[in-house]
């Protein structure tokens, strides 16, 4: 496109086309460079990945256009020369080939685009350790925006650790999930909380005019899960209710306070601060409560009494409820049979 415009431009008068020249240069391929230079993250990996992706997409589009042109020409010949059958077979084969090629190139692009994520995983072990410790230490610095590391290694690993801890809790509590696996439930809960809450809080932060990016939000909330992991790991193994409440208030509270302090330092105005931090604190603390009581031994007894044998699907039930139900049914049938026989 830019080449044709350039050609047009050279055909115009050389003395009059000075302004046009600049504009066309600006609207041509140089735009991509400008966009990439503007990128605030400033990582070379990202730029390379994006460039690569764009070039690939352009190539694909061009190839598909060429393929359709070829088809058009040959279809006409086929209609004249051979029967409808050959044409149909050829079309189907073409479709299959195209679909397969698209799938393969998509898979390859996905694997090649790992490079785009690489800057977010650029950490040293000691940095991760320090950030884990700092996630429990709230800083009382409100006037100046606090720094948030835009990094995803720590949050990802914390989420996977929490998945493992949840699996442990579900197994020891003997939770049975119908129409799903423990693994899927654990992964869904953890990733759902992490991604869902950070996008929700990011949305609220956007409404409250807070200075935070999605990446920073993900990192902040991800490191905030460290407290949850510690509390859950302890309380799934040591069953004291008072211990859980103390840990919930102290460790969970500290990690929540840390996030709240960061958000306060990046928001202006009392009302918006209150809304944003209230939302985050409530969600974070209640999630810990939910995780503790949802997959704990004691909950089995409560479920027994509340729900009884007639439980709807997709709900947690104690392991022996189906057995009890079947035993009861069998015994009633047997006793009825005995009664009928005796009569």
């Amino acid at each position: 496109m830019s080449a044709s415009e350039g050609a047009k431009n050279t055909n115009a008068e050389p003395w009059g086309g000075f302004d046009d020249n600049i504009m066309i240069q600006g609207s041509g391929s140089a735009v991509i460079d400008m966009e990439n230079m503007d990128d605030t993250s400033g990582s070379s990996f990202e730029d390379m990945g994006e460039m690569h992706q764009r070039m690939k997409e352009e190539e694909e589009v061009a190839a598909e256009a060429a393929a359709t042109e070829d088809d058009g020409g040959e279809d006409g010949e086929f209609l004249g020369m051979k029967g409808l059958k050959g044409q149909l077979g050829r079309q189907v084969a073409d479709e299959v080939w195209k679909a397969g090629k698209r799938q393969a190139s998509k898979a390859f692009n996905l694997y090649a685009n790992i490079d785009i994520l690489r800057p977010y995983f650029d950490v040293e072990p000691i940095q991760v350790r320090n950030r884990l410790l700092e996630s429990m230490i709230p800083l009382k610095m409100i006037n100046f925006p606090q720094k948030i590391a835009g990094e995803l290694y720590g949050p990802m690993m914390l989420v996977f650790t929490m998945v493992a801890i949840l699996l442990h809790g579900m197994k020891t509590s003997g939770t049975v999930i119908r129409e799903g696996t423990l693994m899927g439930t654990a992964i869904g809960t953890c990733f759902g909380y992490w991604l869902g809450t950070s996008s929700f809080v990011y949305f609220v932060a956007y409404l409250c005019n807070s200075q935070i990016t999605m990446l920073q939000m993900l990192s902040l909330l991800g490191y905030g899960l460290f407290g949850h992991c510690v509390v859950l790991f302890i309380t799934y193994n040591v069953h004291f209710h008072s211990l859980f409440y103390i840990l919930w208030l102290v460790i969970g509270g500290l990690s929540t306070l840390r996030m709240v302090a960061v958000l306060i330092s990046r928001t202006v105005g009392k009302t918006s601060r209150l809304i944003l931090c209230g939302t985050l604190a409530a969600l974070h603390m209640l999630f810990l409560l939910y995780l503790h009581f949802a997959y704990h031994k004691i909950v089995e007894g409560i479920l027994d009494t509340l729900e009884g044998p007639n439980v709807p699907p997709i709900q947690r039930v104690a392991r022996d409820i189906p057995n009890v139900a079947s035993v009861v049914a069998n015994s009633t049938v047997r006793s009825m049979a005995v009664v009928i026989q005796s009569q």
């Binding site: 950490v123 040293e124 072990p125 991760v128 290694y153 690993m157 996977f160 650790t161 493992a164």
Partner: peptide
């Protein structure tokens, strides 16, 4: 310098 970071998920995997 990053061996520990790469080994932690392996540890978690075999632990589970």
């Amino acid at each position: 310098n990053r061996k520990a970071l790469a080994i932690y998920p392996v540890f978690l995997f075999y632990f589970v």
